[in-house]
């Protein structure tokens, strides 16, 4: 008997969403990287995370790379673009945190505008720990960056009305719906956001992320189920590109923060942290992520190489 390749049928397709001027996410009609089954859509994109304040809390080995530019977000963004060519920059307003600098929304908007004017790639705007504060920050920043098609990370259950109305409806940007590793909550939030009047091709989703080893099976399983529902059951509420802020998670786990004095047997802290970042990024790409956010240049290089080899 001759070998017969199994056939997998798909009935759905992930929306194609344009970020900024022409960065396209999604568009695939098969499981991630299943080019033998059909159209894998656009290449997953890679963004680099920068902050509005100097990243005092980052491990020293990581600070070292950006220390000359990290005082100024516009400089920092351009340093990344010039040296590492990410597809987008994720500008995170850590300084807006009420527990920290408590930067005002107006001030954040000022900074965002300056960064946006200086860069050649699209921005993904991220907030701080406080969802309440983020709603206010996003409103002002979205206004300052009206109709740019930038992504705002993110709208959650408690602030989606405010974020959706400002970011998506009033100021022509893209809303990221964030849920915490639960298919049903993800679906519900997507529905609520579209009910505000936001078009499905004007949103992305963050289904929740963690580092490998830290309940990562829930992340993979939730993403698997979202993609299977979108592609095999043609569930239109889940046909939304997924963006995963990998670096928000991997740089705070023990494997990445333990210094060489803390764990001498583990060897180089920088390599460990890069390893956690790469493995987590590939782990979510393999489960359907359309974009990942990273911090370390080496991770960007390796993950890009991985994506190129899988898609070319």
């Amino acid at each position: 008997m001759a070998y017969k390749m199994p056939v997998q049928k798909y009935s759905g397709k992930i929306n194609e969403v344009t970020i900024g001027n022409g960065l396209k996410l999604g568009g695939e009609s098969v499981l991630p990287f299943y080019s033998f089954d059909g159209d894998i859509g656009n290449k997953p994109a890679i963004g680099m995370e920068i902050w509005d304040i100097y990243p005092e809390s980052w491990p020293k080995c990581l600070q070292e790379i950006f220390k000359d530019v990290a005082d100024d977000p516009a400089k920092w963004a351009n340093f990344c673009i010039y040296n590492y060519s990410p597809d987008f920059i994720c500008l995170k307003f850590e300084g807006a945190s009420p527990d920290g600098l408590d930067r005002s929304p107006e001030e954040c908007a000022e900074i965002a505008k300056k960064v946006a004017e200086s860069v050649s790639v699209p921005l993904v705007i991220a907030g701080c720990q406080s969802n309440e504060k983020n709603a206010k920050v996003f409103t002002k920043v979205a206004e300052a960056l009206a109709d740019k098609n930038f992504v705002f990370l993110s709208a959650v259950e408690s602030n989606y009305k405010e974020v959706g109305a400002a970011v998506g409806m009033a100021y022509g940007n893209i809303v990221a719906a964030e849920s915490s590793v639960d298919l049903n909550l993800a679906k519900q939030l997507n529905i609520l956001i579209t009910q505000l009047g936001i078009k499905p091709d004007r949103m992305v989703m963050d289904p929740g992320c963690s580092a490998v080893g830290y309940g990562f099976e829930y992340v993979v399983t939730t993403m698997d189920r979202i993609r299977l529902a979108a592609l095999q059951q043609n569930d239109t509420t889940l046909q939304v590109p997924m963006i995963l802020p990998v670096s928000f998670e991997t740089w705070k786990v023990k494997e990445s923060v333990a210094t060489e004095d803390d764990a001498p047997e583990w060897g180089s802290q920088e390599e460990r942290a890069v390893g956690m970042e790469i493995s987590t990024a590939v782990g979510v790409l393999g489960a359907g992520a359309n974009a990942v956010i990273l911090r370390h240049p080496r991770s960007v290089e390796v993950v890009r190489n991985f994506i190129n080899q899988m898609t070319e």
Partner: peptide
């Protein structure tokens, strides 16, 4: 093998095969 690749790989495997 070294810890920089073992830590993520073994941790991932432990998760996925739970």
């Amino acid at each position: 093998i070294d810890y920089s690749i073992a830590l993520p790989l073994f941790a991932l495997r432990q998760n996925i095969f739970t």
